[in-house]
């Protein structure tokens, strides 16, 4: 009785060992031929929590990407340090194209500027494709005395620091937007950062702050409870046609979160090209585009070179603002 049980366990152990060996073999053979890329599942790392906008986009992209690439795409989440955790891991990952990570602007530009050691530098993240952006807008409560952006700026000019503005996080897109506004108008606002978009919107809706910097989706969801004074797009935003842009109101600023993907430094150009083509196919899919636009995203189809140039342009723009306002 006892011996038979023990030998049963031994047998099980042998079987398990055999199964354990299989993935090792598969890995080894897959590695040898990078020309066939991709031959196995690709990890698509989201540097933020599940349920956020980067995650929602990736979930939508997944089936189309799998079709374009012919392999599984596995979405993994690695939130932490405002995304820096995932990016610092990406620069250490093997440059074989099997790890791609969401690449969010302005995050990847600001973090290395304001932190002594962010774990990565902006140019270490090799850009692949930029597929969407969410414009950022400025709003006040529906019963606020301010009706236009100019009203708000005039008041802030006379009462420096008196207007409180809610937004998500320090050194983030929302924070940058308020810094840009201060820089361009020479005014001072009190920015009150929350731990995320949801708490920041809640804080504003509860009347704890007078104004709100928020992504377009949050503005859309609560449009009837607020007056949206300006939006950070270059032209009027399709989903909010009555809201003027900052540019229209005489301020040379755009504000938004741009989302794309990046691969580790040293990734071969052929692999980048394969991924670029796959993302291009997804972004050309009308079904995908209309799904994304319904959620309030602006769709882009920016390839690797264009994306890299865009990052350079944004970097110098952001550096000026941060330097002038003494943030760095």
């Amino acid at each position: 009785m006892l011996t038979s049980r023990v030998s049963g366990i031994r047998l099980l152990a042998v079987i398990l060992l055999a199964i354990l060996a299989v993935p090792g073999v598969v890995f080894a053979s897959g590695e040898a031929e990078s020309a066939d890329y991709p031959t196995r599942a690709i990890s698509y790392v989201i540097p933020f929590n599940p349920g956020g906008q980067s995650d929602v986009t990736a979930q939508y992209q997944k089936p189309y990407l799998e079709e374009a690439l012919g392999v599984d795409v596995v979405i993994r989440h690695q939130p932490g340090a405002g995304g820096a955790l995932a990016w610092s891991n990406l620069v250490k990952a093997r440059p074989d194209g099997y790890t791609i990570t969401g690449n969010n602007i302005p995050h990847i530009i600001i973090q290395p500027m304001v932190r002594d050691n962010a774990g990565y530098t902006t140019d270490q993240l090799k850009p692949v494709y930029l597929f969407q952006s969410t414009p950022i807008g400025l709003a006040v409560a529906a019963d606020s005395p301010f009706d236009t952006l100019q009203d708000l700026i005039d008041y802030a000019a006379d009462h420096p620091g008196e207007i409180t503005v809610s937004g998500s996080g320090t050194h983030t897109g929302h924070h940058l937007a308020i810094l840009q506004l201060q820089y361009l108008t020479g005014t001072e606002f009190t920015y009150i950062p929350a731990t995320g978009a949801a708490p920041s919107v809640a804080s504003f809706l509860g009347g704890h702050t007078q104004a709100l910097m928020a992504n377009s989706n949050d503005l859309l969801a609560h449009a009837d409870e607020m007056k949206i004074l300006a939006i950070g797009t270059t032209e009027r935003f399709r989903a909010l046609p009555d809201v003027p842009t900052f540019v229209e109101q005489g301020l040379d600023m755009t504000a938004g979160i741009d989302r794309g993907v990046a691969v580790p430094p040293e990734t071969p150009d052929e692999i980048v090209a394969t991924l670029e083509a796959a993302f291009d196919e997804v972004s050309a899919n009308q079904e995908f585009v209309s799904e994304m636009e319904d959620l309030g995203f602006v769709i882009h189809s920016m390839g690797a070179d264009e994306f890299a140039a865009y990052i350079d342009r944004k970097s110098s723009e952001i550096e000026t603002v941060l330097r002038e306002l003494g943030e760095i």
Binding site: L16, L17, I19, L20
Partner: peptide
Amino acid sequence: IIVALVSVGAFYLLFQMVLHVP
């Protein structure tokens, strides 16, 4: 050793194959 093989192996399989957490 048997306990190690069986338990670690089972979890490895669960994570690698089912949960896709390498």
